[in-house]
Simulated scan of single mutants.
Amino acid sequence: MPLKAALLSLSVAIIWGINMLTVKGAVGEIPPMMLTAIRFLAVAALLVPFTQVPRDKLPKLALLSFVFGTGHFGVLFCALSMLDAGPVAIIILLGVPFSSMLATYFFNDRLGWKRLLGMTLAFVGVTLMFWDPSMTDVKLPLLLVVFAALMWAVANVLIKKLGDINTFELNGWMGLMAAPQLLVLSFILEPGAIHAVINASWVAWANLSFTVIMSSIVAYGSWYYLLKTYDVNQVVPWSLLAPVISVTGSILVFGESISTFKIVGGLTVLAGVAVIMFRKPPQNQEQGMD
């Protein structure tokens, strides 16, 4: 891989690593469902005017907006409002083994013993993190992260079944469809959301702007360019840097605690995901996802 491509891959990983921290900062002021809705509205406003209407793909995009927009991002942001960013950044990597499992069912993709080993390591690592004494009172939020990872994997299947579609069309129109769903959920579950939005500080809006522009548009656009231009084996492993950056940043920025269970569990998850990626990296994953 040329130096410029390597630097671009590194930049994407850094953006996604920082993005987990900016979302964590934003949900501290704006309720998660409302925050996710605003994110998708902003992405749609920036992208939809410059794309064509993918009429033949709208039904599938509508389903994707529910699975990926609400089921993944909405649930993930809810979990981040209740959990430290570090564990979330690690546990969300379960989307990789979940994707392998679904690919076996939907696309007759043979797992092989190496990827089975990787999947086992990933799930063992998450189990170790669940055993951490500091996680005793947050089991439900942890399960929400696992669910969000599963929805990310399901979204990968739906994206593959969409066929050829421009990245900006995908993100823009999915965002336009996801935003109303999330707004309705926010009005039902977050009665003080409007007041929180009105009174949010400039820091919250700066965090949200980073998520919209740098993560949703710049990073994803660069990522798909890299996947189309270079061998997947050269590109995908860079994404493993994102959770490392997130965990490091969560300790430095938010002062999050670290423990033996978190360290061992996190390293085990990373090792398992690395085995899966290096064995046969998925072609249509949306890494970092957030």
Rank of each mutant, 00 (worst) to 15 (best):
A206K: 03
N108P: 00
V275L: 14
Y225S: 00
I15C: 08
T51W: 02
P2I: 02
A196S: 15
V275S: 01
L189N: 12
V275I: 15
H195M: 05
L158D: 06
L185N: 03
V264I: 15
M119R: 02
Q181T: 07
T127H: 07
W173I: 11
S81A: 15
L83H: 06
A155E: 11
K4H: 13
I18P: 05
V43E: 05
G221S: 08
Q52K: 15
V146D: 05
S246P: 09
L46E: 07
I245F: 00
Q283C: 01
G172E: 09
V126H: 00
N199T: 06
P133S: 11
F107I: 07
D290V: 12
F106I: 09
M135I: 00
L21I: 15
A242N: 10
A196N: 08
H195L: 00
N171I: 11
M20K: 02
M174E: 14
Q234N: 10
S215H: 02
A155R: 12
I91S: 05
L142H: 07
G288D: 10
I198V: 15
F278V: 06
R110H: 11
G86P: 03
A153Y: 01
V124F: 12
S259V: 04
L94T: 08
V12C: 13
G192Q: 07
K24Y: 10
T22G: 00
T22M: 13
N156Y: 03
M129K: 01
S65C: 07
L93S: 07
V126L: 02
Q181V: 09
V12I: 15
V67Y: 00
A206F: 14
A44L: 08
K57R: 08
V157E: 05
N19C: 10
T70P: 00
A200F: 10
P141Y: 03
G95E: 14
S201P: 01
L3F: 09
S100D: 04
S11W: 09
S65K: 01
F261G: 01
L7Y: 06
L47F: 11
F278H: 12
S257K: 06
E29C: 08
E190K: 04
T229E: 14
P237L: 05
A200K: 09
L182T: 09
S239G: 02
M1I: 05
I165M: 14
L8D: 01
P281W: 01
P87I: 15
M34Y: 08
V23H: 08
S209D: 02
L35E: 09
K160C: 08
V53A: 11
S134V: 11
A219T: 04
L111C: 04
V235I: 15
V146M: 06
I198K: 09
F123N: 01
F147Y: 09
V273H: 05
W173K: 06
L227N: 05
D137Y: 12
L46S: 10
F40V: 12
A37D: 08
A79I: 01
F98P: 05
N166F: 03
I276S: 02
S250D: 08
P141I: 07
E190P: 11
S134E: 14
P237N: 01
A89C: 06
V157N: 00
Q285R: 03
Q283T: 10
N156Q: 14
P32E: 13
I18F: 15
G112Y: 03
I258T: 12
L58H: 05
N207C: 13
K228F: 04
S100L: 15
L170I: 12
H72P: 02
F107K: 05
L46N: 10
P180L: 03
